[in-house]
Design a binder for these strands. Structure first.
Length: 254
DNA sequence: ATGGCCTCGGTTCGAGGA
């Protein structure tokens, strides 16, 4: 069982790449963020024709999330039932025996902005809801774009980014509180190359110079972590023409 | 020194992303 997450930065633009990537990779469950499509525009037929089931919730221009699965999807929940939010950032579903939560955590824009405070409130509400969700579903995975680089090792220039958005203490503390629910960062369960990132700025030759951040994560409950035998970031699609600025992250489960 | 790219909506520029 392989589960993955990929912020595609517009599914309208990136659908051919998603289909190509799925054709290249035996992924069972793929979580997408920033689909940027209203539900009536979601390319369900194209994905179903390729052999996948889908669950999604979206809006115009911004946000939007989806779960794409080779196996039947049940018990779909859209958004955090405990947090009224017009922004479509969460879709959860059960696939096989696993509770999949796909999340696009707010960016926050800049520390102390209104969007930053929204981000912290959103994260607090996520933690409260996930605690219950975890109790109900011991085999739980939280996949997505967290918009948080958990440690300095996840930042190409930690001095320049110190205290900045995606790296601030409050954001990292919120990430740690998710970990403290009993979840493990799948990527850090295994030896990894230094300077492993999942996002690179389109500007400044960010990818070629590996000026990136690791902000896309797969957190696994204990029951799933014990089944996990690998986690990688697939940089290949970031090298394609007209790429997303994010690369997919994959966790392998026995 | 600043901003340098990409997407969207909707018109050719501004907002947002990270």
């Amino acid at each position: 069982m392989k589960i993955a997450t990929w912020n595609v930065n517009s599914l309208k633009v990136r659908l051919p790449q998603v289909l190509q990537w799925l054709a290249d990779n035996p992924i069972d469950v793929l979580c997408l963020q920033e689909t940027k499509l209203t539900d009536d525009k979601f390319p369900a037929a194209a994905l179903e024709a390729a052999g996948y089931q889908v669950a999604f919730t979206g809006q115009k221009t911004y946000n939007g999330v989806a779960i794409v699965s080779r196996h039947p999807i049940t018990d779909v929940v859209k958004n955090n039932p405990q947090f009224a939010d017009e922004q479509q950032r969460i879709v959860a579903a059960t696939v096989e025996d696993i509770r999949i939560v796909c999340a696009y955590i707010p960016n926050g824009q800049s520390v102390d902005s209104d969007k930053y405070h929204y981000k912290l409130k959103w994260l607090d509400a996520l933690r409260t809801w996930l605690e219950r969700e975890h109790q109900a579903h011991p085999k739980l995975a939280l996949l997505g774009d967290y918009n948080i680089a958990p440690e300095d090792a996840d930042v190409y220039d930690p001095v320049a980014w110190e205290g900045q958005i995606l790296c601030s203490d409050a954001e990292r503390a919120a990430f740690d509180r998710l970990i403290n629910l009993g979840l493990k960062d799948a990527f850090r369960m295994f030896p990894q190359e230094a300077k492993s990132f999942s996002w690179w700025d389109y500007r400044q030759l960010g990818f070629r110079l590996n000026k990136g951040l690791r902000i896309d994560h797969i957190l696994l409950s204990e029951e799933l972590a014990s089944r996990c035998n690998g986690c990688i970031i697939d940089r290949a699609p970031r090298k394609w023409e007209q790429p997303s600025d994010h690369a997919p992250v994959i966790a392998m489960l026995e």
